[in-house]
Design a protein around this nucleic acid. Structure first.
Length: 327
DNA sequence: AAGTTACACAACCGCGGACCT
DNA sequence: CAGGTCCGCGGTTGTGTAACT
């Protein structure tokens, strides 16, 4: 047996609300509240509308303190981060943005923000020694089930990125969108480990973001900040600029936490150098809080890589919880 | 100027789950 | 506990308008 309709669809008005209808609804709710019953409300308010339509109109447009349009950069970041973290749970995202509605955010995402991010996902060539491309990214945004979503297709000079995983893992349908978005965020983003769930950063500096999952993240983070981040740590690397032929300056951000722990994230800046002429390449990280590139502690990370270790690492890696950071 | 296309936003629809009886 | 009702959510569609040809 099907469910009873919430209203007599033949007798309710549909389509855009007139100013008169808005006035009636506003007046009624100001006087009486919603009464906890949207189905009965339109009749009481003298509206020939479905209760659901009234609810939507009120929540999205008529209730006080609603903001429309002009999303700020901060709001963009919050939306991106949360989307990458929890997916398309617009109501939860909206709860973090006072005055914004889930519908508004959803529309904004679908019409603007997603495109903005995808625009930044053009295949990226860093240097003639460091070129790689990402495939399937655009398709995957619109077709989340397409897996593998991203893979590191080509490393013209593989040792340059030995410390990075190539992707190619299959995404489960439940997190594929999230994972993809992780890659999409940033001025130019790559999610290099296909096994990961959300890992996202906004690279406001206009740099070329490279996302690499790093099994030694715990070591790195602990060394810099003394935080025991554990398996939920991730590292974000954004290739900011090339200093010279041998060195690449990388802004790294580390964060930890789950979807409910976004406020616990922290980051650090580090310079990252790897010397093409030495094997194995190494990262020199000089960390400081808040992306300031301080020098409170430093260490080296040996990023030796081989096909076998890559496979092993992927297998051993504990799937990251959703993590997020903002540069 | 008219027609077409693209875009942004508003609104609708159906489903899952909470709540009530 | 089962069935009915309603709310809230997210996906989708509809509509108005700006941009383009």
């Amino acid at each position: 047996m099907g469910r009873a309709p919430c209203c007599d669809k033949a007798r309710v008005k549909k389509g855009p609300w007139s100013p008169e209808e808005d006035r009636k609804l506003k007046e009624y709710i100001h006087k009486n509240g919603t009464g906890g019953n949207w189905i009965a409300l339109p009749h009481k308010a003298g509206l020939k509308r479905c209760g659901k339509s009234c609810r939507l109109r009120w929540l999205n447009y008529l209730r006080p303190n609603i903001k429309h349009g002009d999303f700020s950069d901060d709001e963009d970041r919050i939306i991106c981060n949360l989307f990458a973290t929890i997916g398309s749970r617009w109501s939860i995202i909206a709860a973090q943005l006072p005055g914004r509605t889930d519908n508004d955010i959803k529309n904004y995402w679908n019409t603007k923000l997603k495109k903005k991010l995808m625009h930044s996902l053009q295949p990226y060539t860093t240097h003639n020694h460091h070129s790689f491309t990402v495939s399937s990214a655009a398709a995957a945004v619109t077709s989340p089930e397409a897996a593998p979503i991203m893979s590191l297709q080509h490393l013209s000079s593989p040792h340059d990125y030995y410390h990075l995983y190539s992707g190619g893992g299959s995404y489960g349908s439940s997190n594929s969108t999230t994972s993809l978005l992780s890659a999409a965020v940033g001025s130019r983003g790559l999610l290099l480990n296909g096994e990961q769930q959300a890992t996202t950063c906004l690279d406001s500096g206009g740099g070329h973001a490279i996302y690499f999952d790093e099994p030694c993240a715990t070591t790195i983070s602990s060394s810099v900040h003394g935080h025991g981040l554990g398996a939920e740590t991730f590292i974000f690397g954004g290739l900011q600029s090339q200093e010279d032929h041998h060195h690449h300056k990388v802004l790294l951000l580390a964060g930890s936490g789950t979807a409910n722990q976004l406020d616990e994230q922290y980051n650090f800046a580090a310079s990252c150098c790897y010397d093409e002429e030495k094997a194995p390449p190494s990262l020199s990280l000089t960390g400081g809080a808040d992306g300031a590139g301080g020098t409170s502690s430093s260490f080296f990370y040996d990023s030796t890589y081989s096909e076998d270790t890559a496979t092993r690492r992927q297998r051993e890696l504990v799937p990251n919880k959703a993590s997020s950071c903002i540069n």
